[in-house]
Design a protein around this nucleic acid. Sequence first.
DNA 1: TTGCAATGGTACGATACCGTACCATTGCGG
DNA 2: CCGCAATGGTACGGTATCGTACCATTGCAA
Lengths: 202, 202
Amino acid sequence: MSAPVTPPTDKQAAKQEEILNAAWEIFAKEGFGRTSMDQIHACVGGSKRTLYKHFPNKEKLFEAMIERISGRVIKALKPRSATESLEATLFRMGVDYLTVLLSEDGLALYRAMTSEARHFPELSRDFFENGPEAATKSLAQFLALQQSKGSLPDIDPETAAELFLGAVRGNLHLSAVLAGRSHSPEVIHNKVSDAVRALLRD
Amino acid sequence: MSAPVTPPTDKQAAKQEEILNAAWEIFAKEGFGRTSMDQIHACVGGSKRTLYKHFPNKEKLFEAMIERISGRVIKALKPRSATESLEATLFRMGVDYLTVLLSEDGLALYRAMTSEARHFPELSRDFFENGPEAATKSLAQFLALQQSKGSLPDIDPETAAELFLGAVRGNLHLSAVLAGRSHSPEVIHNKVSDAVRALLRD
DNA sequence: TTGCAATGGTACGATACCGTACCATTGCGG
DNA sequence: CCGCAATGGTACGGTATCGTACCATTGCAA
């Protein structure tokens, strides 16, 4: 009973993946407006009928693709639980956060979300709330825990977390998005290191 | 001699202004891809021939319009010279900076620049360099001056300026761009106030 | 082997949009 | 008052794109 159902399901799932990958490749480079379904079709191969069988129109395809990448990036933004020292944990969290934001997918996703925020409001809102905002709240929780141990000055944790992540981004994110600058891991390390020192005040 | 020349020049200049204003109204709301020359034409009135006489195609019109708004925003981002105390100056600079970034035009410009950064690279690069980056450098100069007076801890001024402005932005800019949130002057004041306290360490 | 559902490949209709052409009209100098 | 340059208003050519239709082909069950 499941034999005649699951194999086609698997094939369909594989086809969907293929389509979404092809779509992301082109959408990420060209944006929504300059990407045509024919380009995606040419990139993924097969027939347009099957393409439209998986995704009824361009917007649904865009949404599905964004949700996919968004979920991936959001997962990467989520801070891992801390086992090291306070300073090392802050440093690692900052580096991870910034590395994701400045990654190829992170930047392409941010561009896409920003460009289409007006026409796909829930997509970009969800990304912000589950991505950067959730990361801020996680960091705030961690900071609150550290404060209860007395290893951190007594600032509001939410505030401190937002200041810290803002300082970590500095101008790097802006310069990558607007000026197309790429930033080496060393630059990222230095920026985070500066922000950690500022937060810990030494 | 100038009489037969300047009146038409004035009229042409007025017409250009009118076109650029109409274009901005629509481009800012819809973005480049979803804005048609026919919409702009309908908004500005007159004939398409005159529209294309002022701007030979859609891209040139977009560039001219962006340069116009960009120049306006850049000018607003430029910090005014300081006459108050250190703390008051920092506070005022932060509030001015953030207010411009979060203004309607600031956000629309940022969205447009981000969306089209790949296709109009010089536009967005110039905006970044002459806007946020220049503002950072101006602030760094001010901080260096304050350090020479001994009223500020001894951090690298460039670094401190970038950390400060990054902290000032916090998540406000992201949340405005991605989640469509608007932020009251009180929220802006509080955020800047937090950042000033963090920088001055009290 | 045979039949059937899904897919490949492609042509097509409808629409939107960019930029141009054309003519009537208006404002301004002589 | 007259002529002329610029503009208003609009129709049009050419092209790109979205989504559908159609038929040959393939993979799979019986």
